[in-house]
Nucleic acid binder design. Structure first.
Length: 355
DNA sequence: GAGCCGTGGGT
DNA sequence: TACCCAAGGCT
């Protein structure tokens, strides 16, 4: 039994019919749809699951309901609402893009592909998504969902991240993208990938393209998309210093580049530091005399490209904070009155335990 | 262009 | 446990 061929027009018609019956239409960013809300959701959804994004989206929109409110806000406020979501360059880029829209486009959201792609954080696929979802233009998306659907439909067994495979997929995505109902089509492709053509255990028997799917007919569904060779990630160790003065804890702002860029963190000593090293460090870095350090339970935090074994160690000081020591780079964080700043997830957890 | 950039859920 | 990877983009 051969695979039934499919024209672009038939694909569109059947996908849209499926969407009308089974698509998602009640996600928060689909209500009161504006380019701004679509943009925020698309950035949050980069490499992040829908269920994780929803509460962040609600809080973010409540605090920054439009581009101008976002542009006017301090970056620390933005990072505060982003804290825990990860990939913090997204938040920094979002803020910078909001400033650009306010200053260069008079607060009017850009509506062309090329202009959108000049904004930091918006690449080819996100630009296509915004065009389609917010402006009903035939923007082309190629995210993980679309790649999986198209690769299976066409039986592409090559590694999904190959350059040539990528080009093939963009061409296929363009071929299928309709001129009308661009928003529904785009949402439908993502919904099909997210709810039917899932990575594991796809619901092929409910798929509108069952008869047309090369992967299904050749029993290749489980092999497509082919997973890239897994690279093992290294483990690093660091000592995180919990430097307490009464109800205050010392936090340092991290540099913009690198992990947790722009967020506030506990002072960090590379490797596993012993008591003597910690006392010496406090004296040299902060001019503080501290009590005998007390090591807390070590735990592991995993990033996208390495593990970090964290060794928290607590010390106390009685010295009053000086004006010299308080700066935007270095703050005494009041455990009883949390500031609106960005804190990495493991730091949130540690501070929470101290409350 | 390959490495960098977070976190949580699924298996 | 360990590994995969999710509505990617930037350098």
């Amino acid at each position: 039994m051969p695979v039934v061929p499919l024209t672009a027009h038939t694909f569109q018609r059947r996908l849209l019919s499926w969407f009308d019956a089974h698509g998602r239409k009640h996600l928060p960013w689909q209500q009161h749809k504006t380019p701004y809300r679509v943009w925020i959701s698309e950035i949050m959804l980069q490499q992040t699951q829908v269920g994780t994004v929803i509460p962040y989206f609600q809080h973010f929109i409540q605090r920054f309901p439009d581009v101008l409110s976002l542009a006017k806000a301090p970056l620390d406020d933005v990072l505060h609402l982003w804290a825990g979501l990860g990939y913090y360059s997204r938040a920094r880029n979002l803020h910078q893009a909001a400033v650009m829209i306010a200053e260069q486009y008079q607060g009017r959201f850009p509506d062309t592909k090329d202009t959108l792609q000049t904004l930091p954080g918006i690449g080819r696929s996100t630009a296509g998504a915004i065009l389609a979802l917010a402006f009903e233009q035939p923007g082309i998306i190629l995210d993980g969902n679309v790649k999986r659907v198209l690769a299976r439909l066409h039986g592409l067994t090559q590694p999904i991240n190959d350059k040539t495979t990528e080009q093939t997929l963009w061409a296929l995505a363009e071929n299928y993208t309709p001129v009308i109902r661009a928003a529904d089509y785009t949402q439908a492709m993502m919904d099909l990938g997210a709810t039917v053509c899932t990575r594991s255990k796809p619901a092929c028997l409910t798929c509108p393209f069952l008869k047309n799917c090369t992967a299904y007919h050749h029993h290749l569904t489980a092999c497509i998309p082919q997973k890239r060779p897994a690279k093992k990630i290294p483990t690093q160790e660091a000592t995180f210093l919990i430097l307490k003065r009464g109800r205050h804890v010392l936090l340092c702002k991290r540099p913009t580049q690198g992990i947790w860029g722009g967020l506030y963190c506990l002072p960090e000593i590379a490797g596993l530091a012993d008591s003597h090293t910690v006392i010496q460090y406090c004296q040299q870095q902060f001019k503080l005399l501290v009590s005998e350090p007390k090591a807390l339970n070590s735990f592991r935090h995993t990033f996208s490209h390495y593990h970090l074994q964290i060794h928290p160690i607590m010390v106390q000081t009685k010295k009053a904070p000086t004006k010299l020591m308080e700066s935007t780079q270095q703050i005494w964080y009041n455990l009883s009155k949390p500031l609106a700043i960005g804190l990495p997830k493991p730091i949130q957890t540690i501070l929470e335990a101290l409350r």
